[in-house]
């Protein structure tokens, strides 16, 4: 069995108790996904599995069924994903540690259809903590992508 991450196949960990997060960070050199609390409470480790938000610190690697996308796999051929570009444009971080998780969560927030208003974005992004509280910029970045998508 292999693990498909960002379009590439990787080996599964031998120990069934290994989380997806630890496996990626410690064995696969995919350190873009961060460990903030390791309890599924801060959102820093958010990745997408088949487009859905998953907290990789709570997901055992061997139980992953589907394609994993991490922050490293979001841009294609050096072209930033619109959400990455929006975070850049809005300078939507300070220390940057929560940023990979915020961006992955934000991509899903828009695709889920939960970015219809500022209040909706705030509610559906509340699982991703930012201690620097760059929330105004994060909300603005997500709103800009949602709006661009809505306008087609």
């Amino acid at each position: 069995m292999t693990l498909c991450i960002n379009g590439a196949d990787y080996p599964m960990p031998n120990d069934p108790r290994t989380t997806l997060l630890d496996h990626m960070r410690e064995k696969l050199n995919l350190t873009g996904t961060k460990k903030g609390c390791d309890h599924g409470q801060c959102g820093a480790c958010t990745v997408l599995v088949d487009g859905k938000r998953v907290l990789s610190c709570l997901q055992l690697a061997q139980t992953v069924r589907g394609d994993v996308t991490t922050i490293e796999g979001l841009s294609k051929n050096d072209t930033l994903h619109p959400m990455q570009a929006a975070f850049l444009e809005h300078d939507a971080y300070q220390c940057g540690f929560c940023t990979p998780g915020q961006i992955m969560s934000a991509v899903a927030c828009v695709s889920e259809g939960h970015a219809g208003s500022d209040a909706e974005i705030a509610d559906w992004m509340s699982g991703n903590l930012c201690r620097c509280a760059a929330y105004p910029q994060i909300r603005a970045a997500i709103a800009s992508v949602a709006q661009a998508e809505a306008e087609g």
């Binding site: 050199n29 460990k35 922050i71 841009s75 570009a85 850049l88 940023t99 990979p100």
Partner: peptide
């Protein structure tokens, strides 16, 4: 914007635990 902005949004910005 902040320095290293591009590194932050692509997950390449290294913190201590990310240093190989």
């Amino acid at each position: 914007p902040h320095d290293a902005a591009h590194l932050h949004v692509t997950g390449q910005a290294r913190y201590v635990d990310d240093i190989p």
